[in-house]
Design a protein around this nucleic acid. Sequence first.
DNA 1: GGCTAACCGAGACGGTACGTCCAGTCTTCGT
DNA 2: ACGAAGACTGGACGTACCGTCTCGGTTAGCC
Lengths: 184, 184, 184, 184
Amino acid sequence: MLNAADDLLVERGFAGVTIEGIAARAGVAKQTIYRWWASKTEVLIDAYLEDAAEDLTPPDHGDLVSDLRDYLRTLARFLTGSDSGEVFKALIGQAQHAPDVAAAFRDKCVEEQRHRDRLPIERAIGRGELPKNLDVTMAVDQLVGPIYYRILVTGQAVDPRFIDELVDSFLHRSVRSDGSDQAN
Amino acid sequence: MLNAADDLLVERGFAGVTIEGIAARAGVAKQTIYRWWASKTEVLIDAYLEDAAEDLTPPDHGDLVSDLRDYLRTLARFLTGSDSGEVFKALIGQAQHAPDVAAAFRDKCVEEQRHRDRLPIERAIGRGELPKNLDVTMAVDQLVGPIYYRILVTGQAVDPRFIDELVDSFLHRSVRSDGSDQAN
Amino acid sequence: MLNAADDLLVERGFAGVTIEGIAARAGVAKQTIYRWWASKTEVLIDAYLEDAAEDLTPPDHGDLVSDLRDYLRTLARFLTGSDSGEVFKALIGQAQHAPDVAAAFRDKCVEEQRHRDRLPIERAIGRGELPKNLDVTMAVDQLVGPIYYRILVTGQAVDPRFIDELVDSFLHRSVRSDGSDQAN
Amino acid sequence: MLNAADDLLVERGFAGVTIEGIAARAGVAKQTIYRWWASKTEVLIDAYLEDAAEDLTPPDHGDLVSDLRDYLRTLARFLTGSDSGEVFKALIGQAQHAPDVAAAFRDKCVEEQRHRDRLPIERAIGRGELPKNLDVTMAVDQLVGPIYYRILVTGQAVDPRFIDELVDSFLHRSVRSDGSDQAN
DNA sequence: GGCTAACCGAGACGGTACGTCCAGTCTTCGT
DNA sequence: ACGAAGACTGGACGTACCGTCTCGGTTAGCC
């Protein structure tokens, strides 16, 4: 059933995902779907949860710059080029239309995603590469925000160069924000 | 007709906007709508264009910090609290589902919006507050990206404190990036 | 279970009787119903048999006219005004749609009913009030046929006056049909 | 559409008639059916009206006995052996379940039928074969009632012998009831 | 100034999917 | 072991909109 939903989304787009279509493809009665999910969006959320998360495990090279560049590139590729990313974007899209979808989606998907997003930063703090008092949430917003923005809103390409610049800007600012390099 | 579409979206959400509903509320035949627009999304794009843009004219205080803080707050308020902002978000949402919507939406709405976003930066460059070789696109992405990200993806609040920090980070980094303020 | 079926029919009509409804009201699992009956119609047949028959025992006043008038009025009241009568009519109705229902219904309900219908006539023959060679089946058809016809088909009222006329016609014809009054 | 309904009823019985089935067979959208009829029963009523009535025009041999025998045999054949008769019986059946169906059915179908039933009697009265003060309604009930009764309730055969006896009984009684043949 | 054409409202139409109800079959679990 | 509980496939229900398609009944323009 979840696979059926997944496949339909990739093949025919969000509008092509229908409860009837999922049921037909999964060889299941509509009622069975309604028994477990309230809408196609909830099916997609579960479909996303099932087979998506692991693709995004942040790497750990023991080096902030490498970690960030690697991870953010993976994130961009996930959002623009993978099936799970398609589902994720579709769900973000749907979240703009229905507050209940937004709530469920954030609870179950975004929360987890944000947790992963924080890891490289937190590890760097642990290693002393970044100051202990760094506002991690803020840092994450500044790093991934522009990426989501380009993908969701403007459609601009998110290429390695863009990510490198993003990381550079972030690091220069961050390092400086604890005052340590102002002394130079 | 555009008002009807607008009103329906605000009252009942994107799913509550239907061609039939618009026609009924506008006292118009469905066919008349189809004569000029290909889908409800296109109606909403035009509805957005009609009465939205002017709310977002960036201010010009002659001072980058004030301009940015003022403008980004206005942008956040527009996205989270205005009727036009609702339409805008609905269209971003729909753009995730349909590439043609995405294309039209970016052409007609985002383009213009991006132009406005650049103004404070460009004026600051003109005034010499920012270096001439600054990558404006990048700068805009870093400033508005996190705001859109919070609103569209995570649902975190976008309050003045967040915006101030965003602006501070940006300025320290930007100013520093050409090395000009290190000389001070 | 039978009571549940009965009650549902009276409260909500034939379409309101469902296996699930009976099961729910009787506090029983659907499967338990299917174990003993093949369809809701069979449940209704048994429900009818359980608590219906006795209301229609023909009276025995020792006088054909009184017996017939009394009995036919009771029959009319049964068909138009009693709960069992509602079940009976519902079953006749259903018998028009499904031959198997018709067969079962006639076997189990109509047969018995016909037997009761014959009693007044047969007793009158026994008493010598009617000729021994009278075609009892024919006589019954002529007496009860018009009553069923009005109730099932035309919806005309079946009032005492109608029944009296029916009985009168029958008696005059019957007495004469053995040739005994042609001699006058 | 009406033909489709008709055909389905004859082929698959009343339960086999569904709005979806009619729509599919007629090459029409469900909504179109719902636009014009409130239920499958109403479709069947109109289907019956369209192509049924003319089969039952009572004959006029100028002779009551012939007229009645001929007509009642036609009626019996109509009810037991024709497609329209199947529809008619199905509607009578359904009328037992739903008062609104009963009302519509009686208004549109039974009324007309009753009118035809009266014709032989009324013409005989016009010709002086029957007394002017004869209760025609009562007479019709007594003639057709037993036929409907056998067909709808008991399932007994309605053969020519039965009809002949019915007519004989009726005539002897009727003729006698005004005293005219007692004078012989 | 009258004829004609375009446009518009109204809404019927063939469709697709919705979400619900119930049928009839099945498995599980507790007494 | 039996029966309640209820999940399951399947199919029809009646509804909402879709996008297409006639219909008249205005206007408006052009001769």
